[in-house]
């Protein structure tokens, strides 16, 4: 069954400075700010086009490889070096913290699922969203993929974030929006070696199917696009309406 694509958005690199400076994000993690920067325009467009949409009609599937790595590392550092367990860092360290944060910020009351694909298949979030839509668990489903890797001194030097990115598409049960449809996600068994090293310096956008899909939707007029991920793990196709 194909699914309509309502919208798409990408953030390549860290959050924009004006987003980081917002007072309401003072205690937010980088993942949370990236997610907010992604979803605000998408939800504004969605609610403008469908003013009848209820919070309960909107679902969210958020995938992140490493989750809230920044908060996790800082929590453990504080606990091990000073014996201080900071509650805010703990609640922000949970893998679904950004999903919960975005649900609160944007009143998302349908199913909210967080997932970690671990470099296996970045398409799993898209497939989950399709399943939720086909089963009428929501009318619209935001599919978000984001990660921010803090630079860890001694591994690569420097400070801040060695890599970060975020992308999102909005899938819908009904036609409209971008006028394109997500047709199929085909998962292929493949004997690719399991990921064995953290990929500190690589930018995942080049191999993240959701990022590629969102980027193509925003920039391409192509009626039918197919992408085969490197090493043939999975195939995703989408096309014009």
């Amino acid at each position: 069954m194909s699914t309509a694509i309502f919208g798409a958005h990408v953030v390549s690199g860290p959050p924009a400075p004006e987003w980081l400076a917002k007072p309401e994000y003072r205690r937010a993690t980088i993942n949370m700010v990236l997610g907010a920067q992604l979803l605000e325009p998408l939800l504004r467009d969605l609610r403008a086009a469908h003013p009848e949409v209820l919070s309960e009609d909107i679902g969210l599937v958020l995938q992140s490889q490493t989750g809230e790595l920044e908060a996790t590392v800082e929590f453990l550092r504080g606990w091990s070096q000073m014996g201080i367990a900071r509650p805010l860092l703990f609640q922000s360290s949970l893998h679904n913290a950004t999903a919960g944060f975005l649900a609160i910020q944007y009143a998302i009351k349908g199913p909210v699922i967080s997932t970690s694909p671990s470099f296996f298949s970045e398409e799993q979030a898209l497939e989950m969203a399709q399943v939720l839509l086909d089963e009428k668990q929501c009318r619209f489903c935001l599919v978000v993929s984001l990660d921010a890797w803090p630079a860890i001194k001694g591994l690569e030097g420097g400070s801040g974030f060695s890599a970060s990115y975020a992308s999102a598409v909005v899938l819908a049960r009904e036609p409209g929006g971008l006028g394109r449809r997500l047709n199929s996600i085909e998962m292929k068994p493949e004997a690719r070696p399991v990921f064995t090293e953290p990929q500190w310096s690589h930018r995942p956008s080049s191999r993240n199917a959701l990022f590629n899909l969102a980027s193509a939707l925003l920039s391409s007029e192509t009626q039918k696009v197919e992408t085969q991920k490197e090493e043939g793990r999975s195939v995703i196709t989408w096309s014009g309406a």
């Binding site: 989750g67 949970l94 893998h95 679904n96 999903a99 919960g100 909210v112 699922i113 967080s114 997932t115 970690s116 694909p117 671990s118 296996f120 298949s121 799993q124 989950m128 998962m187 292929k188 068994p189 493949e190 004997a191 793990r233 999975s234």
Partner: peptide, 11 residues
């Protein structure tokens, strides 16, 4: 070798 693998982390 199933490719159908999901991992959920919703607390």
């Amino acid at each position: 070798r199933t490719p159908h693998r999901w991992l959920l982390t919703s607390a």
